[in-house]
């Protein structure tokens, strides 16, 4: 085999587990590294949400961070305003974004994917307004602080384990889904909805379910975010963040299960060492252009060719790709 795709072994969760173990050993006891590792994990979840909705189902959403914000505010309101358990908050942080995403997709998917993208953008703006106008309930412009840490993860070290356990769990779920009839139908619907109909697929229903699942993943990311930062405000998880995680997923490879995590890790590490925060926009812009030119399928999704011993570059074949990339050529 003279071509390969990084880290896409038999079960992606195993490769991820190995990388996480290395990361855990490297960051053990370093508060600064642990904090970054937790944030990478949280952004990985949002990027995975993009991977499922955009990469697998072809639904371009600009509301990933909005669903995370809904999850974060749900748990913040329950735990700060009502002194309820964060685990009740988790339930709300999963259910609320799931229902929002499902209803949004259900109402709009009978049109075509573009109106749904616009609707997700509108939803982002709407939620921001609702948060700012929510008074004491949402904390208004100031936000809600004093969100309790989790009893199962009181320290940064424990939070690191919890976050990455959740990422691993989500990867396992995504892999099971995509290796089933349902997952194959999702891919067919992305490529050609009419073909999916002829396979017997109720396309709007299936894509709404998929979008709801991606909303749930984002909601869990929001829950972790709220209990890690212990503060959530109107400027925490904005449409700007949605665009950033979209970029992360695209850079890593949206159609490969681990691609979005890889993209999130790379971009967050690079941003960490970027001299000025103001240059971020320019940096992301150039990354996007670079990716579109060099590897439109993302870092993990591209078939990186190695010269063979015979010297030539043979036609790439990549049976190791979990999700074969499609079209565009």
């Amino acid at each position: 085999m003279n071509s390969y795709s990084l880290f896409t072994w038999r079960h992606p969760a195993l490769s991820l587990l190995m990388i996480v173990s290395v990361g855990t050993a490297a960051s053990y006891g370093h508060p600064f590294l642990l904090d970054n590792s937790i944030m990478i994990g949280i952004f990985s979840l949002m990027a995975l949400s993009v991977g499922i909705s955009y990469g697998q189902a072809g639904i371009l959403s600009l509301a990933t961070a909005t669903f995370a914000a809904i999850g974060a505010f749900a748990t913040a309101i329950l735990t700060v305003n009502y002194r309820l358990s964060p685990y009740l908050g988790l339930l709300a942080a999963i259910l609320l974004p799931t229902v929002c995403a499902y209803l949004l997709a259900r109402c709009i998917l009978r049109l075509s994917p573009l109106p749904l993208s616009i609707a997700t953008f509108v939803l982002g703006g709407l939620v921001e307004v609702l948060i700012k106008q929510g008074g004491d309930f949402t904390g208004g412009y100031i936000g809600l602080s004093g969100i309790p840490r989790l009893s199962i993860a009181p320290s940064a070290q424990a939070m690191h384990f919890l976050t990455w356990a959740v990422v691993l769990l989500v990867v396992v779920l995504c892999v099971s889904l995509m290796n089933s009839s349902t997952g194959r139908a999702i891919n067919t619907a992305r490529h050609d909805p009419l073909r999916a109909v002829a396979d017997g697929v109720d396309v709007p229903h299936l894509l709404s379910n998929t979008f709801a699942f991606s909303g749930a993943i984002a909601g869990v990311a929001g829950w972790l975010y709220a209990h890690h930062i212990t503060y959530i405000g109107p400027d925490s998880l904005t449409t700007q963040v949605s665009i950033t995680v979209l970029l992360m997923a695209v850079v890593g490879g949206v159609k490969v299960i681990l691609g979005p995590i890889f993209g999130a890790a790379i971009l967050m590490v690079v941003v960490l060492y970027l001299p000025a925060a103001e240059s971020q926009g320019m940096f992301f812009g150039s990354i996007l252009v670079f990716m579109l030119l060099v590897a439109p399928n993302g870092l993990l999704g591209s078939r990186w060719r190695l010269p063979t011993l015979r010297g030539g570059l043979e036609r790439p074949t990549s049976p190791m790709l979990l999700m074969p990339a499609k079209e565009e050529n």
């Binding site: 889904l177 009839s181 349902t182 067919t188 050609d192 009419l194 697929v201 998929t210 074969p324």
Partner: peptide, 25 residues
Amino acid sequence: PRFDPRITVEKAVLCGFYPVARSGF
């Protein structure tokens, strides 16, 4: 024929099983 040129022959045939799969999402 309507098909995704990137999927394998096996995956294309597997797609046809959708109506008999009972598992759901």
